[in-house]
């Protein structure tokens, strides 16, 4: 009897919390199909006109393209830097390894605002203009430590023997890394790549501080917010969410399916 009351209570709490967690997304997506001019009750849709407006707005589509460009390029570089460093620190007994690891992961502990502000001050003092390039630099700074940490944690001892075999058979170090280590590490390399993509795609404050004329999507959405509650913002936000979910599903399919098979 008491047990049953407990499980009722558990079920109720679960329902309540899932409701809380899903409330904003539901409201966001629902009112992106709003027929009227405001994303508030009563709902008089469904209508696709706000999506049409978003896709017809060249500022938003340009920003979307910029965001994708920055996300892909910065994640690519972040994965390369992270992978090479993880390989070197996992496989060679370099001096001051603990210190190197600490330095490489340090950016994870500092708030994005401070990283962005530091870069802004430095670029200003050195006379480097703000552009998508500087935004990309900032995104590599926040994502390379993440890639390093993920790949480093997966560099197990079981791959060492295969690498050693390749070396014994006469492969050069670079060939071994390219043809043996990288394919073996592919799941964690892909996982860190897609995770970096989602973080870069969503990142606002660094992009806001370091961009000027060409902006990324979160910055463009930020300026949409000034118009108050607006179904167009809902539609743009729903599209951003959709793309993030696509990244995550791709990661799930490409990475975790492989792990299961392998």
């Amino acid at each position: 009897m008491r047990r049953q009351a407990g499980s009722w209570l558990s079920g109720f709490y679960l329902l309540l919390m899932y409701g809380f967690i899903y409330l904003p997304v539901t409201v966001l997506v629902l009112f992106s199909f709003q027929g009227g001019r405001f994303p508030i009750l009563p709902f008089n849709g469904p209508s696709l006109k706000w999506y049409r407006q978003v896709l017809a707005d060249s500022k938003l589509t340009d920003a979307m393209f910029n965001s994708l460009l920055v996300a892909v390029c910065s994640s690519f570089l972040a994965v390369i830097l992270g992978f090479l460093a993880a390989f070197a620190l996992a496989r060679f007994s370099l001096p001051a390894r603990a210190l190197q690891r600490a330095l490489l992961t340090a950016p994870l502990t500092v708030s994005y605002l401070i990283i962005g502000l530091g870069l802004l001050i430095m670029f200003n003092m050195l006379g480097v203009g703000r552009s998508l390039w500087t935004v990309g630099v900032g995104h590599v700074v926040i994502n390379a430590p993440l890639c390093f940490a993920i790949i480093y944690s997966q560099m197990g001892a079981h791959q060492v023997n295969v690498e050693r075999a390749a070396r014994d058979l006469g492969a050069s170090l670079v060939t071994t890394v390219w043809l043996v280590t990288l394919p073996m590490m592919m799941p964690s390399v892909m996982a860190s790549f897609f995770l970096s993509m989602t973080f870069s795609w969503d990142e606002f404050i660094i992009a806001f501080l370091l961009s000027r004329f060409d902006v990324t999507l979160p910055v463009e959405i930020w300026s949409l917010l000034r118009s108050g509650l607006n179904p167009k913002t809902n539609a743009a936000g729903s599209l951003v969410f959709l793309v993030s979910v696509i990244f995550i599903v791709l990661m799930e399919l490409l990475v975790f399916r492989r792990i299961k098979r392998g």
Binding site: P24, V25, V27, L28, T198, W201, D202, F204, P218, I221, W222, L225, T233, A236, G237, V240, F241, S244, V245, F247, I248
Partner: peptide, 11 residues
Amino acid sequence: WTSYVVRSYAW
């Protein structure tokens, strides 16, 4: 995975 800015707007 909703964008951070968008999530606050949704609230």
